[in-house]
Amino acid sequence: MAAAQGRFSDGADGSDGADGDPVPPAFQRAVDALQSARLRPEVEIDPTKPPKRLAPHAYALEAAVVQDDLDLADGRLVLLHDPAGHEAWQGTFRLVTLVRAELEPEMAADPLLPEVCWSWLTGALEARGLSYGEASGTVTRAGSHYFGGLSERRPATQIEIRASWTPREGMGGVPDAASHLASWCDLLCQIGGLPPAGPMDTGVVSLPQRRGPQTL
Score class of each variant (00 low, 15 high):
A3C: 03
A4V: 03
Q5S: 01
Q5H: 01
F8P: 15
F8A: 15
S9V: 11
D10C: 05
G14P: 13
D19E: 09
G20E: 07
P22T: 10
V23E: 12
V23H: 00
P24G: 12
Q28N: 05
A30T: 04
D32F: 01
A33I: 00
L34G: 05
S36T: 05
S36P: 00
A37T: 03
R40N: 09
P41R: 02
D46G: 03
P47T: 09
P47Q: 11
P51A: 15
K52F: 04
R53H: 14
R53T: 09
P56Q: 11
Y59L: 08
E62N: 13
V65C: 08
Q67A: 06
D71K: 04
A73L: 06
D74L: 03
R76W: 12
L77R: 14
L77C: 08
V78P: 09
L79K: 07
L79N: 08
L79Q: 09
L80F: 13
H81A: 09
P83M: 10
H86W: 00
E87C: 00
W89T: 07
T92V: 08
T92P: 03
R94E: 13
L95H: 08
L95C: 13
V96S: 12
V96R: 14
T97M: 10
L98G: 02
R100L: 04
A101I: 00
L103A: 07
P105Q: 05
P105M: 03
P105Y: 07
A109N: 08
D110S: 00
L112H: 12
L113S: 08
E115W: 05
V116S: 12
C117G: 09
L121N: 13
G123D: 14
A124S: 15
L125F: 06
L125W: 01
L125S: 13
A127N: 02
G129T: 03
S131K: 12
Y132I: 07
Y132S: 10
A135V: 14
A142W: 06
H145W: 13
Y146M: 10
G148R: 12
G148D: 15
G149D: 15
G149Y: 08
G149R: 14
S151F: 07
A156H: 10
T157C: 10
Q158F: 14
Q158T: 14
E160F: 00
I161K: 06
R162V: 11
S164W: 08
P167F: 11
P167I: 08
E169H: 03
G170H: 11
G170A: 12
M171T: 14
M171A: 15
M171N: 14
G172S: 11
G173F: 01
G173M: 02
V174A: 03
P175E: 11
A177M: 02
A178K: 00
S179P: 03
L181A: 01
A182Q: 09
S183H: 04
C185I: 02
C185A: 02
D186S: 11
L188K: 04
G193Q: 04
L194I: 00
P199K: 04
M200Q: 07
M200D: 14
G203H: 11
G203A: 02
P208D: 11
P208L: 04
P208G: 10
P208V: 06
R210F: 10
R210I: 02
G212Y: 08
G212L: 06
P213V: 10
T215H: 14
L216D: 13
L216N: 14
